[in-house]
Simulated assay, not measured.
Amino acid sequence: MRLLTLLVLVWLVIGGVAGWQRGYFGDSEQNCSSLATVATTVVAGPLNYAGVNPQVECEGLPEPSQ
């Protein structure tokens, strides 16, 4: 169990470093798309260095039906 926890922690740290290198943690616009892209980058972890460049587009909140 401790090994799994350590692996997940290292995975997320590598994802955080990738997000930092891409400048996602600087002073930028805070909206759905930017926050989702940062979260996806962190979760992707080492895959960022294998060519994965997650980008998330948000349209905003869905409108209720009439």
Rank of each mutant, 00 (worst) to 15 (best):
G45S: 10
T40M: 14
C32R: 12
S65C: 04
S34G: 05
S65R: 12
L12M: 12
A36R: 06
V8H: 02
A18G: 05
G45Y: 08
P64D: 15
P62Y: 11
G15V: 11
P46G: 03
A39L: 13
V10Q: 00
P64F: 12
T40G: 07
Q66C: 02
S33N: 11
Q66I: 08
A39E: 13
P46R: 05
G16C: 10
G51M: 04
L47F: 08
L12Y: 02
A36K: 06
E59N: 15
T41Y: 00
P46C: 03
N53A: 03
L47V: 09
Q30A: 12
V52T: 03
S34F: 10
E57L: 09
Q55F: 03
S28G: 15
W11S: 00
G60N: 08
P62K: 00
L4K: 12
V10L: 07
A44T: 15
G45F: 08
G15D: 10
V38S: 11
M1S: 03
T5Y: 05
E63G: 08
D27C: 11
Q66K: 10
Y24I: 06
D27T: 14
N48I: 02
L6D: 03
L6A: 07
L3Q: 08
Y24Q: 14
Q55I: 04
N53T: 06
S65I: 07
L9N: 01
L35T: 11
G45E: 08
S65A: 06
A50C: 07
N31I: 15
Q21G: 01
S33Q: 13
A18S: 13
R2M: 08
D27H: 13
C32P: 06
A18H: 08
S34Y: 06
G19V: 07
E57G: 06
S33C: 11
W20H: 12
L61M: 15
V43G: 13
G26S: 15
V13P: 00
V43K: 00
V17R: 03
L12N: 05
L7N: 03
Q30R: 15
A36C: 15
C58F: 12
G16L: 09
E63A: 14
V43C: 12
T41I: 11
S33K: 14
G16K: 02
V17A: 09
G60D: 06
P64I: 08
R22D: 06
L4N: 01
E29C: 14
Q66T: 09
Y24K: 04
N31H: 15
E59F: 14
S34E: 11
V17K: 04
V43N: 06
V38P: 05
S28I: 15
A39I: 10
A50T: 01
P64K: 04
L6C: 02
C58E: 11
P54M: 03
N48M: 02
Q66F: 10
G19D: 04
G16N: 06
I14Y: 00
Y49L: 04
T40L: 12
C32F: 13
Q55A: 07
A50W: 03
N53W: 01
S28P: 11
G19N: 05
W11C: 01
S33W: 11
E59L: 14
R2P: 00
A50F: 05
V43T: 15
W11G: 00
Q66V: 09
L35C: 11
Q21D: 03
T40Y: 09
L12F: 06
T37F: 07
Y49W: 05
G51E: 01
L12Q: 07
R22S: 09
L6F: 07
S33P: 07
M1A: 05
